[in-house]
Design a protein around this nucleic acid. Structure first.
Lengths: 316, 316
DNA sequence: TGCTAATATTGCTTTGCGTTATGAAACTGG
DNA sequence: CCAGTTTCATAACGCAAAGCAATATTAGCA
């Protein structure tokens, strides 16, 4: 015997509304339509679902039981509709975001938290990686968005890159570090302190090397490496070590993490930190609001950085 | 937007089976059929439910979520089918049984307990009443079965009466009562003891009056009345009071309740304790097994009574 | 590059749902 | 008990959708 869920839902509505006519009304159907549906259902069940010869149509014991099940089915159906609805509006679903570890931890994570305060049903799956690992994932659809540093020349044909922040790196140390009290910093000053190295395969590591070369240091002493941002920040705050970090990361976390950027210009490639994603738009609807949210947050962050620098310059 | 529960169930099956072809197989439909169903569903949802251009058809995030809901809908649908199935076989549902209080409590209740050991999903709603109140309830469908004493002449045209046990009443007393030790009992012996009277509107009460008239007693002293069987049995067991009870009740409960029947023939109308129900068969399917179960139980009880009497007679 | 298996498409028939119009039965108030 | 009203069932018919077989297409794979 095959019962259609649709029929059970209709039965439930009739029982709930207490009558065939009202039930049909609530369902947006005509009265004869639901009448026949019930007749068909009764025929399939083989047992009357309503007591015969009663005008305000009263359900049988079995009819009432089936109606309860129909009601639960209807609730699930409704849930499905709402899910589709919210998903289409970008208020639900899953977003898979990958990015470079330090920037994700230091800047993006807190923005994600804020984003989820408005879009609580968007599940964000975060992963870490660099350009060479993120790009294939974007291409085969296992990643919706990558957040990484990139120069204009590097942008692949099939991708779109939206820049968020200047990719400027700085040499970071704990606040109150001896070097912060000096007016001008020389190579000899720098060479006194050990370095924290980011993961060896990261752009940051290459930036660190380049930066040191740019200020004349040929050799450098590494006393901590391989950690994520949380570890790096802890070691940095608890020692006189130095490291290279994106300025945005230092700026955002300097209060809580007790960090500071050294007033030392270092060379770095002309890169932007930004969002990379596939050109074709068959992506999760929640991606659009997420992208614009992150972009807006970064605009505000950029403005705060600008403002802060002006104040510092004026005071300095 | 309107999603059909049917479609969600199909989606669930496809996702579960891991492929369109296998899903179609499991559903007993052709592959093109479910293919088009999914196409239609996707069109209504407006978002792809399966990743495009993948041969072992992999669901999208939304597709997977909807499939989970579809699966739950399917489970409820299955539950509905099973409910109908068990209901049709008389293994589920609700039975409303009404009967005379003493007989229901003393004989039928324990049989109901036994019945439910085999039919655990049959919910029995018991109520009490006499012929004049039970009959209308049977007629308007608010009662499925009545259990009461009735003579052949009383059976209504539109009802069927199945007799269960002889309606013989006896005078009951506690076991070890002074009267049980006497060989022959006279009116004068009886008059020494007070009576427990059943409810004044019950057939038993009229039987009590008739019985006492039949043995010559004009007047009798009542020291307890209005109680249900449990109270009557307690008072009976704890005093030297007498009362009138169906022999079947005394027989079944004499061990646990410490009762005994006096070896005294009393006159009573030619009635049978039996089951009364409406002739037309639009009743709960569970009624049929219940009726035959009760009938069989009473046959066995009758046989035990017969056997017991023969043994008693031989010994006596 | 071709083979194989999985999915889509096509063309057609049947089923069932939707409607309006209308008939029949049950409740209501006098 | 008898109109009147309400409520449900039935009839006739158009249409959307489900069903199938046959066939085209395409992703994986060797």
């Amino acid at each position: 015997m095959k019962l259609e869920s649709e029929h059970l839902e209709i039965l439930a509505m009739i029982v709930e509304k207490g009558g065939l006519t009202e039930g049909a009304d609530a369902l947006g159907k005509s009265q004869p339509s639901v009448s026949r549906t019930i007749a068909l259902l009764e025929q399939r069940v083989g047992v009357p679902l309503f007591e015969p010869g009663r005008r305000p149509l009263r359900p049988t014991e079995l009819g009432a039981s089936l109606a309860r099940l129909g009601s639960r089915i209807h609730a699930l159906n409704l849930e499905a509709r709402q899910l589709v609805d919210r998903y289409s509006k970008g208020q639900a679903g899953r977003l898979r975001i990958g990015g470079t570890p330090i920037f994700m931890d230091g800047v993006i994570a807190s923005m994600i938290a804020e984003f989820q305060r408005h879009h609580s049903d968007v599940h964000i799956e975060q992963s870490y990686g660099y350009g060479d690992t993120l790009l294939p994932h974007l291409r085969n659809g296992s990643l919706d968005l990558a957040i990484l540093p990139m120069s204009a020349a590097q942008i692949p044909q099939d991708m779109v890159f939206v820049s968020l922040l200047a990719g400027r790196n700085v040499i970071a140390c704990r606040s109150g570090h001896p070097l912060t009290r000096k007016g001008t910093i020389t190579l000899a000053d720098i060479d006194l302190f050990p370095w924290i190295a980011p993961p060896a395969d990261s752009p940051l590591y290459r930036d660190l090397q380049r930066a040191l070369v740019s200020i004349g240091s040929q050799d450098f002493r590494v006393n901590f490496s391989g950690g994520t941002f949380a570890s790096i920040a802890s070691v940095l705050a608890g020692s006189d070590s130095l490291t290279v970090l994106p300025y945005s990361v230092v700026f955002l976390t300097r209060k809580t993490m007790q960090l500071e950027a050294l007033p030392l210009k270092i060379e770095h490639p002309n890169r932007q930190l930004g969002m990379l994603f596939a050109k074709e738009s068959a992506t999760a609807p929640a991606l659009a609001p997420f992208k614009s949210f992150i972009a807006e947050q970064c605009r505000q962050l950029e403005a705060r950085i600008q403002h802060d620098q002006q104040v510092t310059r004026r005071r300095g």
